[in-house]
Design a protein around this nucleic acid. Structure first.
Lengths: 161, 161
DNA sequence: GAAAAGTGCTTGCAATTGACAACTGCTTCT
DNA sequence: AGAAGCAGTTGTCAATTGCAAGCACTTTTC
């Protein structure tokens, strides 16, 4: 786990944390799939991550300050939560999802649902961030009556299957 | 160069192409640094990519349809250009840059410049995409008198150093 | 017109990282 | 006490990465 930055560039700084294929997928499952425990993350994702890789990535993400590890009374049921820095990865995730929807298979499928993400952008993302803050940080949402962005986003994410 | 997708998820689709640390940095240098030739990319980036890795990544990015290789009369001065799919990576790049600016070093530095990217968002990105289309695809910009977004973005990117 | 310099890569090799399977120590349920 | 579930660790081996050279080619320079 090398923490020496390769350069001072901001994009490089992000890439050194998020540039690993598995890091993004783990974050995705915690964000959208709401998986919080080791075994859930291990078995849950469609891509089939190996246990040592998952352990390594969780450690890195905790060290980088994207996740916190809540070791609920030692040994059992350790839960991983997003920190504020981790929650702020959502825009990156959505941008990646948009790109993936638009450009795999030569840009032909799933246009309709993709529009939910593509243009619903900023407000939807802001609302989703409020939800993530509530779930992971325990911060109540500013407007509890606001529509649940997670459902729209999760639907668009499911459409990505 | 394995092209078999690990899953059908859109985020995974994007990660399989963009999830490599070097892929994003190469695209960054082509986008913001306007480096188009092998040797430029090799010597130009602050991170110091190895030649075999660069060759491998360029090949992958061309195969994935993000770059095109213009082999100006065989042998000499092959130029790499962004395709439309490559240009569309810009929002991902900006989101990554934002995150990097905000969250490295515990969120303390470069706030001022970061705001250029953070909230100037959508319109700035759209304008920059028009510019990239002009430079890399030869498509004239819809409004040639519009301010040059690349200067604002490049300034914010330079601030990231 | 031969030498020098520049081009896009390729090759060899040591070291790191990745995937797969099995296993450890701990805790709780029966 | 036994079984089952938990979060990981360890071992092994193949694939990938990083670094230093080198190669075949083209253009420039003298």
């Amino acid at each position: 786990m090398d923490t020496t930055p390769r350069s001072g560039c901001a994009i490089n700084a992000a890439v050194e944390v998020l540039g690993d294929p598995w890091a993004m997928l783990v974050l995705r499952d915690i964000m959208f799939g709401n998986r919080r425990h080791f075994r859930e993350l291990l078995a849950g994702s469609e891509e089939g991550i190996a246990s040592n890789i998952l352990a390594s990535r969780l450690k890195q993400l905790v060290a980088a300050g994207l996740l916190s590890r809540d070791d609920a009374r030692r040994g059992q049921r350790a839960a991983y939560s997003l920190t504020e820095a981790g929650i702020q990865v959502l825009p990156v995730m959505v941008a990646l999802g948009n790109w993936g929807l638009a450009h795999r298979d030569g840009e032909r499928r799933l246009r309709v649902r993709a529009e939910v993400l593509r243009d619903g952008g900023p407000e939807l993302i802001a609302a989703m961030i409020d939800e993530l803050r509530e779930v992971h940080l325990g911060v109540p949402r500013p407007d509890p009556d606001a529509p649940r962005a997670s459902e729209l986003l999760a639907a668009a994410y499911e459409a990505a299957l």
